[in-house]
Design a protein around this nucleic acid. Structure first.
Ligand SMILES: [Zn+2]
Ligand SMILES: [Zn+2]
Ligand SMILES: [Zn+2]
Ligand SMILES: [Zn+2]
Lengths: 131, 131
DNA sequence: TATAACTTTGTAATAATATAACGTAAGAAA
DNA sequence: TTTCTTACGTTATATTATTACAAAGTTATA
């Protein structure tokens, strides 16, 4: 699952680099606009890189925002157990790294006993700054 | 928060009706196609109804699928605490109604002590049928 | 080396999802 | 009635994402 940055392709590095430099989640077309000076001209080049980066856990997709954020959770070797807090006022997004929470959710069993291999949790509220 | 169906507008009823008849989440444009015989011709008519229905908790949006499902969780007076299980093979979606889970998540406090007023959780796996 | 197999890239076109803007009509409430 | 608000219909457009196909680069191995 984990993969070193050296293994990334050129386009993947370019896209990851710009996402890592952003404090906030970035939208695909904003990424596209920002990497055009580096030669990535068309949506598929960006989306292909995003797909791969999500797959290997370097970035996560914030589903409710259609945006992508770099993973800064060192414990997040698991790209398939993600949790975020989202401020509905300033749209600030933080990845939550709580081993208690991830343990609880990873062990969660529904009534039918279906076994999950992945989850995504998004919390919404108003952050301290916005209060 | 809770609202009776009688309070729904004509278009809202039409859209809710078709979603409730579907066992699975429906996409906005699939809904649009299906309600054209009832006079709803343009996307905004559908999206406006969807927005309202989500707001009052009659339906939920499955964010990772851009699709909408009727709420069948009678305990789900709270439209702002949702959890789903999604089969990645057949795309079957079920709303999870576990008071234990909802209590756990509603009480969850992150490190910064930000108070959440809403969450959405999506579990992914392979359902029994698909095993 | 060669040559096949595979991955990544570039590019154009298009599909799918969602909203803006504007005017009209209907309903509630004052 | 007048005012206020919500819903409606319509056109156009914005945003997000994928399909399809050819070219170039990489890796494996014969
Ligand atoms: Zn992470
Ligand atoms: Zn904020
Ligand atoms: Zn519900
Ligand atoms: Zn299934």
């Amino acid at each position: 699952m984990a993969q070193k940055q050296e293994n990334l392709s050129k386009n993947q590095k370019i896209v990851l680099d710009i996402i890592e430099k952003s404090a906030q989640p970035m939208k695909a077309y904003s990424i596209l606009f920002n990497v055009q000076k580096k030669g990535l001209k068309a949506p598929p080049q960006v989306y292909r890189a995003l797909d791969k980066l999500v797959e290997i856990g370097k970035i996560h997709k914030i589903e409710s925002r259609n945006a992508f954020i770099a993973c800064r959770n060192s414990a997040c070797t698991i790209a398939n157990a993600t949790a975020f807090s989202i401020c509905e006022s300033c749209e600030d997004v933080k990845e939550i790294s709580s081993s208690k929470l991830s343990k609880y959710l990873s062990n969660f069993q529904d009534k039918e006993g279906m076994k999950y291999n992945k989850y995504n949790l998004e919390f919404f509220g108003i952050c301290k700054k916005c209060k």
